[in-house]
């Protein structure tokens, strides 16, 4: 007799098979709800899609009208001796069905731009990635060293952190107009907004991580003859390296959240322009596709960085990785799960 696994044991990891199931479910559940709302006619579906207009004058095939209006117009038509329109329940246009969005994931890339100087989706995406990259790289170039100095030397923190804390509460988009005035209307002000949105958080987050270094290691290094410079570069920084790397992963996600507001600064561009444009044409399946692509890029980058992190920090105490657990599960052909 096997003991039933307990799901609500505090702090206890489930088995690797259960972990993968849960990971898949985490995506499949929302997808399932979306599919239910889209495909089951009696769930939500507040509108009617007209199939045969009958004698209602302004009805056309594929027109979306509210149930009440549809019934009213039909009643009027029948009373006037005409034929009633027929239709099927439908959802509003801003909620396309999963299959439409799935198709759009492909067609969005294949659709040529409508106007001459508009960009293809992949070009828009590339523009956005470049904006993020430069904004984040510039922010890190200053923010990481400054954060490390703040964390290691309290006087630097006392000098820097009050003002950083102050500016941090000013929303980065508020600087958009200023950025345009100073940097023009093209790429630079967008990078500046990403920079402003990331930098101040970055200094504080990095400083906090570095402040948590183990003082016992500093003392050990001192008794081994390490000077002030070596304490910083050979002890404090390496002792925090894994945490700093993970902070950077989180901060990169933070930078992405500023993308949409950054890209409407000056001349709208990148993925934001694509999304706005598609919304204007009422191609909501393309809008969803673009949003999902942003999510996929984010998830893939983050998991990629996590994977790289496990390689470049060999002293890290390994927690079982999701990818490895998944591969192990695939490798175990029909074997009994533990």
């Amino acid at each position: 007799m096997t003991r039933r696994p307990r799901w609500f044991a505090v702090g206890k990891e489930p088995s690797s098979r259960a972990r993968i199931t849960l990971g898949l479910l985490s995506f499949l559940l929302p997808l399932g709800i979306w599919a239910l709302v889209s495909y089951v006619p009696w769930i939500w579906h507040p509108l009617v899609r007209v199939s045969v207009p009958g004698t209602v004058e302004w009805f056309k095939p594929d027109l979306l009208v509210e149930h009440a209006v549809f019934n009213e117009e039909n009643a009027k038509a029948v009373a006037a001796g005409g034929t009633a329109a027929t239709g099927t329940p439908a959802n509003p246009i801003f909620l396309p069905a999963p299959h439409a969005v799935g198709r759009a994931l492909w067609t969005a890339f294949a659709t040529p731009p409508i106007l001459r100087d508009e960009l293809w989706l992949h070009q828009s995406l590339w523009l956005s990635i470049r904006t993020i990259f430069w904004g984040f790289a510039l922010s890190s170039l200053i923010g990481v060293p400054l954060g490390i100095l703040c964390g290691a030397y309290p006087p630097v923190a006392r000098l820097t952190e009050p003002v950083v804390d102050f500016v941090r509460y000013m929303p980065a988009p508020a600087f958009g107009a200023l950025a345009v005035a100073v940097l023009g209307i093209y790429g630079a002000p967008k990078i500046a907004v990403i920079f402003l949105g990331t930098f101040f958080q970055q200094v504080l987050v990095i400083a906090n991580t570095v402040r948590r270094h183990d003082p016992a290691l500093i003392e050990a290094a001192q008794t081994l003859g390490a000077g002030p410079r070596q304490l910083l570069l050979r002890v404090i920084v390496p002792s925090c390296l894994i945490d700093l790397y993970n902070d950077q992963r989180i901060l990169l996600g933070w930078a992405w959240t500023y993308l949409i507001v950054a890209e409407v600064v000056g001349i709208s561009s990148g993925i934001t322009f694509f999304i706005n444009q598609q919304a204007k044409y009422r191609n909501f399946d393309n809008v969803y596709a673009a949003i999902i692509i942003i999510g996929v890029i984010g998830l893939v980058t983050d998991q990629g960085l996590a994977f790289i992190g496990r390689r470049i920090f060999p002293w890290q105490v390994r927690r079982s990785s999701r990818l490895r657990a998944f591969l192990a599960l695939l490798g175990r052909k029909g074997g009994q799960g533990v």
Binding site: E219, T223, G225, S239
Partner: peptide, 20 residues
Amino acid sequence: SGPCPDRGMVFQGYTLFPWL
């Protein structure tokens, strides 16, 4: 005055550098 490698120290907590 101050720490110096002419007085080596071994602590109760293992203070090895984990990244080395």
